[in-house]
Amino acid sequence: MSEDGRHGLTIIAFIGSVFSPYYAWDAARDPFAHCAINVVLYGERANRFAMTERTARSLARDAASFSLGPSSLEWDGSVLTIRLDERSAPIPHAVRGTVRVRPRALTAQPFTLDAPGLHRWWPMAPDCEVEAAFTAPDLAWRGSGYHDTNDGDGALEDSFTDWTWCRAPLKAGSAILYDVRRRDGSGQNLTLRFGADGARREMRPPLEASLPPTGLWRMPRATRSDDGRASVTRTFEDTPFYARSLLASTLDGEAVRPVHESLSLDRFRNPLVRLMLPFRMPRRIG
């Protein structure tokens, strides 16, 4: 994930695409039959959303690389190089370019999001330098970025009802807020600050701050801040079950512009919502 104030970029490599309707409908629940590289690009002149699902026949991976169809990710020990050659949907536009992610430091450990330990999240590199160069559309920039990993042993919608997450760059390091609501009625609010060296720092838990719902789908949004106040600067993504936004707030005494997401898994599991998803998530066999 990267943004520079004018552009935003999210890239997710999936084995077992957790938001895939095809995966949800698959009785075998084989994650390798449902792989995807999701690219979401926001710019002043062009926006793109690409998420083509492919099978294991299009997948190759080892300890340092991951390739799926025409796109790939490769780690050389200091730089993650992502080469993209995808096509957006429902309007087919090329999404082609190279993104280089340079973590300033790596963190020590993952976090468990549910009581049984089925879902794990690791904010591996909370503070990165990102260089993006696209030929389709024609865009290039440098900005602040973030890299994490998720893995799990069950469907997200079986364990959680909703969550909110945000990450804000700070003068030295970054802050991450991750609030999950579990299906058993319990919850977990993570308040994390990492220094520029990747080490975890103490941070006072901020106060609840309300946000307006999104304009089209009325997705609920909420966050936390030092003074219990926050505002939406820009809504990047407004869907029936997910919203991504740029906020203005205060965290650990600093004025910040966090990238924020809201996810409703109650909405996602609605059969009507799942029937809408293939229009944006086409599937290719082979």
Rank of each mutant, 00 (worst) to 15 (best):
L113T: 10
A136R: 13
S231A: 15
R274G: 08
F66N: 00
A175P: 02
F14T: 02
R181W: 06
G228F: 04
L118Q: 15
S71D: 00
L59E: 03
D162N: 15
L68M: 01
M276D: 00
R221Q: 13
G69Q: 06
S231N: 04
P110A: 15
N38T: 10
M51H: 01
V273Q: 04
T214P: 12
D138V: 03
P137V: 11
R204W: 01
R120F: 05
L251M: 15
P126N: 08
A36G: 00
A133Y: 11
S231L: 04
W217H: 13
T214S: 14
E131T: 15
G43S: 13
R280I: 06
P123H: 09
A28R: 05
S264K: 02
T233N: 03
R280T: 08
L263D: 01
T10P: 02
A56H: 07
P92E: 13
A46Y: 00
L247M: 11
L265M: 07
H119Y: 10
F236P: 00
T223H: 07
Y178P: 06
D26R: 01
A36C: 05
T250H: 10
S144M: 15
Y22L: 01
A230C: 07
L277M: 05
F66V: 02
D184H: 08
T149I: 12
S78L: 05
S78G: 15
G253P: 04
A136C: 07
P258C: 05
S58L: 04
I176M: 14
A28Q: 10
Y22S: 01
D158Y: 00
L216D: 13
L265Q: 09
R142E: 14
A60Y: 08
P21V: 04
P103L: 09
P70A: 06
R201V: 04
S249F: 09
F279C: 01
D30V: 02
R218A: 14
W25T: 02
H260D: 10
N47H: 14
S17P: 00
I12C: 03
G253T: 07
R167K: 12
D184E: 11
S225P: 06
L73R: 06
A248P: 07
M1F: 05
R283A: 11
T10D: 01
A255W: 05
L251N: 12
T112I: 15
F268I: 06
V180Q: 11
V101N: 12
P70N: 10
S159D: 08
R87P: 03
D252W: 12
L275I: 00
F268M: 14
A64Q: 13
S2I: 11
T164C: 14
S264V: 08
P213C: 04
F134I: 08
V18F: 03
L156N: 02
T55D: 14
D62H: 07
L247H: 12
A175N: 02
A196F: 08
I12E: 12
N150P: 01
R201Y: 09
R167A: 11
H34W: 02
H93I: 00
E53M: 02
P240W: 07
D266N: 11
G5M: 12
S20E: 00
